[in-house]
C-alpha cells in the first residue's frame, strides 16, 4: 500500500481519478465522433455538476459531523414549489419568495439538527423521517407543477459567462464559502472535532450540539439553493423534482467518492466536488454513447464502488495528515490540514 501514492492524500487520488475519467471520457466521446470540449458538452457537464454539487456540499458538512441527510430531495422539491408559488410570475416577488424558501429550509435543517443532537436519533432515521413528513405535506398540497418563476429569475439558469453557466458559478461560490468556513472558523474546526470523536470533542469543551445543528441547517439551506436553481431552470415548481434526481443517495455517494469518511471527522469539499464531477463526466459519456438506461445504473454502481475502493484500502495506513509533508498539489487541495 505504501507506494509512490503515499504522499497523495485521498483528495489527490480523487482528483487523479477525475483527470483519468476526463481523459477516458474525451477519448470515448471522440470515438463517437463528438467533441468532448465543445461548448454544448461543457455546458452539459457543468450544469450536471451544479445541482448535485450544491447538495453534496451540504451533505459533506453533515457527514463530517457524523450524521447523514436523507431529506434533501424533499427539501429541494418543497423549496421549488414554495418559491414558485410565491413568485407567481411576478418579478417583485422574487426576493421574498427566495427568502421564504431559504427560511423554511433553515427551519427544516434546524429540526433535523435538534432531533439528531438532542433526541439522540441517528441522522439516518431522523432525516428519513423528516423526508417522509415533508413528502406527505408536498403530496397533500401540490399535485403537479405549481406557480411560475418570472423571467428575471429564469435568467439565472439561462445566463452563461463564456461556456460557464451561472448556476455552476453559484455552486462554486457556495463551495468557496463552505471551504472558508471549514478552514478558517472555529465552527469549522469543531465540525471536524465532533465528527471525529464526539466524546473527545465534548471533553475538550466543545458544545457538540452546535456543529451538528449548524451542519444540518447549512445542508438544508444548500438543498434549498439547489431547489431554487432547479426552479429557475424548470420555470415552474415541481413537487417531485428532488426525488427525480435521487439526490439523497447520489449526494452521499459523491461525498464518499470524494474521500470524506462516512463516519465523519475527515474529508473536504474539494474532494466532494471532484466526486460530483466524476459523476457528471460519466453521465456525459454514457449519454453520448447512448448506453442503455438500465446499464447506466449498472455502470454507476460499479464505478462508485471501484472508485472508493481505490483509496479506501490505503486510508488506513495513512498517518494523521499533519505529520505528512504535503505535496504542492495537496497543499492546494487539502483544506483540512
Amino acid at each position: 500500500m505504501r507506494s509512490r501514492l503515499q504522499h497523495l492524500t485521498s483528495t489527490g487520488i480523487v482528483v487523479a481519478v477525475l483527470v483519468l475519467s476526463l481523459v477516458v471520457g474525451a477519448i470515448l466521446t471522440a470515438i463517437e465522433g463528438r467533441n468532448f470540449l465543445s461548448s454544448g458538452n461543457i455546458d452539459a457537464i457543468l450544469t450536471g455538476c451544479s445541482i448535485l454539487g450544491l447538495i453534496a456540499i451540504g451533505q459533506t458538512l453533515v457527514i463530517l459531523v457524523g450524521s447523514l441527510d436523507l431529506s434533501v430531495p424533499f427539501v429541494v422539491s418543497l423549496t421549488s414549489v414554495l418559491a414558485a408559488g410565491h413568485m407567481a410570475g411576478e418579478p417583485g416577488n422574487v426576493v421574498p419568495a427566495v427568502l421564504l424558501a431559504l427560511g423554511i429550509a433553515a427551519v427544516i435543517g434546524l429540526a433535523n439538527g435538534l432531533v439528531v443532537s438532542f433526541l439522540k436519533v441517528h441522522g439516518f432515521v431522523a432525516t428519513l423521517g423528516m423526508g417522509l413528513i415533508i413528502s406527505g405535506y408536498i403530496g397533500s398540497n401540490y399535485q403537479g407543477s405549481h406557480g411560475l418563476a418570472p423571467r428575471s429569475f429564469r435568467l439565472i439558469d439561462a445566463t452563461q459567462i463564456g461556456p460557464v453557466p451561472l448556476t455552476f458559478l453559484i455552486m462554486l461560490g457556495c463551495a468557496l464559502l463552505a471551504i472558508l468556513m471549514l478552514r478558517r472558523t472555529r465552527l469549522g474546526h469543531h465540525l471536524y472535532a465532533v465528527g471525529g470523536s464526539p466524546e473527545v470533542a465534548r471533553l475538550s469543551g466543545i458544545r457538540t450540539s452546535v456543529p451538528v445543528v449548524v451542519a444540518h441547517v447549512l445542508c438544508s439551506v444548500l438543498a434549498a439553493v439547489a431547489g431554487l436553481l432547479l426552479l429557475s431552470r424548470l420555470s415552474v415548481g415541481s413537487p417531485t423534482i428532488g426525488s427525480q434526481g435521487d439526490y439523497d443517495l447520489m449526494s452521499i455517494a459523491a461525498v464518499v467518492l470524494g474521500g470524506t469518511l462516512l463516519a465523519g471527522g475527515k474529508g473536504n469539499i474539494v474532494g466532494t466536488l471532484a466526486g460530483v464531477a466524476i459523476f457528471a463526466v460519466l453521465d456525459s459519456v454514457m449519454g453520448v454513447m447512448q448506453v442503455n438506461p438500465f446499464l447506466k445504473d449498472v455502470i454507476r454502481g460499479l464505478v462508485i464502488v471501484a472508485a472508493v475502493a481505490v483509496y479506501a484500502g490505503r486510508e488506513i495506513d495513512r498517518r494523521p495528515a499533519r505529520f505528512d509533508r504535503p505535496t504542492g498539489l495537496d497543499a492546494v487541495l487539502q483544506e483540512t490540514k
Binding site: 469543531h190 471536524y192 465523519g264 471527522g265
Partner: peptide, 8 residues
C-alpha cells in the same frame, strides 16, 4: 477505519 483524530 481507526477512529479519526480531530484533524482541525
Amino acid at each position: 477505519t481507526p477512529t479519526p483524530g480531530t484533524t482541525n
